[in-house]
Amino acid sequence: MSDVVLYDVQGPKARRRVLLYSVGAVVVLLLLIALAARRLAENGQFEADLYRPFVDEPQLYERLGVGLRNTLKAAGYGLVLAVLLGVVLAFGRLSRLWLFRLPAVGVIEFFRATPLLLLILFFFLAFPLAFGTRLEPLTALVLGLTLYNGAVIAEIIRAGILSLPGGQSEAAMAIGLRRGQTLRLVLLPQAVRIMLPSLVSQLVVLLKDTSLGFIIGFEELLRIGGQVVQVLDNPIQLYVVIALIYIAINLSLGRLASWIESRQRRTLGTALPAEQPEGGLGKV
């Protein structure tokens, strides 16, 4: 077991006791579920009318499909733009010129500490008033997601680059590459491999955050769900289904992240430095 073992290998007596506790725990959990179920039943939440649309209403799935597509669209655009912004910001923060470094640090720290909703509202409310052009809800959402996740991804990229052995940038300099070339041609491609798991985990965050689009009227999964609930009046059932859709997608992404991680551990083996806090560019 990888976890710290907080209890001994169990002998016959301990096994009996654990079994007893386990049975007790199951009883308590079942009791809680039963209480919740009774509450739901008393309030008529098990009536077939609330569930029938899931079976005999193809339109319901059409609507949810539209919402899901919009959710994935926003997440896709957001991811691509955020990675681009992240690379730019990370290079800026790693730059030796304070003219590039300071603004990058400021931008990263500001957008990481601001609520994403505020950024989305900025593009949706303030942008039209300040510049006289309305932005589509999708554009406002994607731009907000880009700024926030770009700042976070910049830090992921920076950590990836800093974790490379110092010999990489030294070797690049020794063959006469300029610093920009070193970053672009030598360090970034290697860092991408290391940071891929964190990047996929950030994608889960990004995907979840697209649901903020409902506030500005973007028809993603949750907003469509809200419209459907107004007709069917089954919020518990429908929002649980929506939650399950998100959970299914995000669990697969999480699976993907840990698969990549275990694959890397196998293929890169000892080539991956364990911890090199002052290696790489830190010294330069």
Binding site: S211, I242, A243, I247
Partner: peptide
């Protein structure tokens, strides 16, 4: 379950 659900969905529920 909770980590993979958007906070907004928790709010709606």
């Amino acid at each position: 379950a909770v980590r993979n659900t958007p906070l907004t969905v928790v709010f709606f529920l």
